[in-house]
């Protein structure tokens, strides 16, 4: 059978070869044009395949591993952050969620979440019990790259000085360890998550198998003692500045222009 799908496929193969040729010859514009045509044909081909599949069975679209989330995304993130007790990067938030809950968080949705929260606050300030907001850098009071926090936390916990990333890492390790100790039968994912912390804290655990949450918490506490005071004073000072200099929105979502202008030449 020489179906239209097969003819399409042959054309797709030819185009692929042409794209490689153009790329190899350094003809970027031509490669771009060819790629565009290639995508068009691939879409057409997908449709043809779906039609073909329709006749035999329902097409199976990619599905998440688990059925839909039980909580809205922002509450899942809030849960994870509350557990960690300190600002965290999306990657860690996802790992925490997966270790203790069912369902999947798609990284791209976290990015849009942050924008949605700010928009919501601007439209109707303080109408929600909490907002998910970026942590702020201590010096410029601008959003810290890739760190999420909860609006109800004290300002000093939401600003990030030089020592804060490590301090927050240790705080999170202590809280995670505490959580693992409380819940019956923590999952393999949960233990593996704690091990990722423990492996990098001096004296926390000799090996993944021999790790105990209590020892991890003790070791983290010991290192935390070294950093706590200087981090605290740095953060308090920055928080004071933030409260004095920033408006309501900026206190949550950071100052962009002012920070930039103050370092400009």
């Amino acid at each position: 059978m020489t179906s239209p799908a097969e003819a399409l496929e042959r054309r797709i193969d030819e185009l692929r070869a042409a794209v490689r040729k153009a790329v190899t010859a350094g003809e970027r514009d031509r490669a771009r044009e060819l790629r565009k045509e290639l995508r068009r044909l691939e879409d057409a081909w997908d449709e043809a395949l779906d039609e073909l599949a329709d006749q035999t069975e329902r097409p199976v679209k990619p599905v998440p591993r688990q059925a839909g989330p039980l909580l809205p995304l922002r509450e899942q993130v809030h849960q994870a952050l509350t557990l960690l007790g300190a600002p965290a990067a999306p990657r860690l938030i996802i790992a925490v969620h997966e270790a203790f809950h069912v369902g999947e968080i798609i990284p791209a949705r976290l990015t849009s979440l942050r924008r949605d929260e700010e928009r919501s606050f601007r439209t109707a300030p303080h109408s929600r019990p909490y907002y998910l907001c970026p942590a702020l850098t201590a010096d410029l009071l601008a959003p810290a790259r890739g760190l999420l926090a909860v609006s109800t936390w004290p300002m000093a916990n939401r600003v990030i000085g030089p020592l804060s990333p490590r301090v927050d890492f240790l705080i999170s390790a202590i809280r995670l360890a505490g959580h693992l100790d409380r819940i019956p039968d923590p999952s393999t994912d949960a233990r593996r998550l704690l091990w990722r912390f423990a492996a990098n804290i001096p004296g926390a655990a000799p090996s993944a198998a021999a790790m105990t949450p209590a020892a991890v918490a003790d070791a983290a506490e010991a290192e935390l003692d070294i950093h706590r005071d200087s981090d605290r004073s740095h953060r308090e000072a920055a928080a004071k500045r933030a409260r004095e200099q920033l408006d309501d929105i900026e206190q949550l979502f950071g100052s962009r222009l002012r920070g930039v202008a103050s370092t400009g030449s």
Partner: peptide, 18 residues
């Protein structure tokens, strides 16, 4: 141009699907 799209097509499809 060839391998990456092919691996993606594999990864994005459901097991045993056409």
């Amino acid at each position: 141009e060839v391998l990456a799209p092919a691996i993606r097509a594999y990864a994005d499809s459901a097991p045993d699907s056409p």
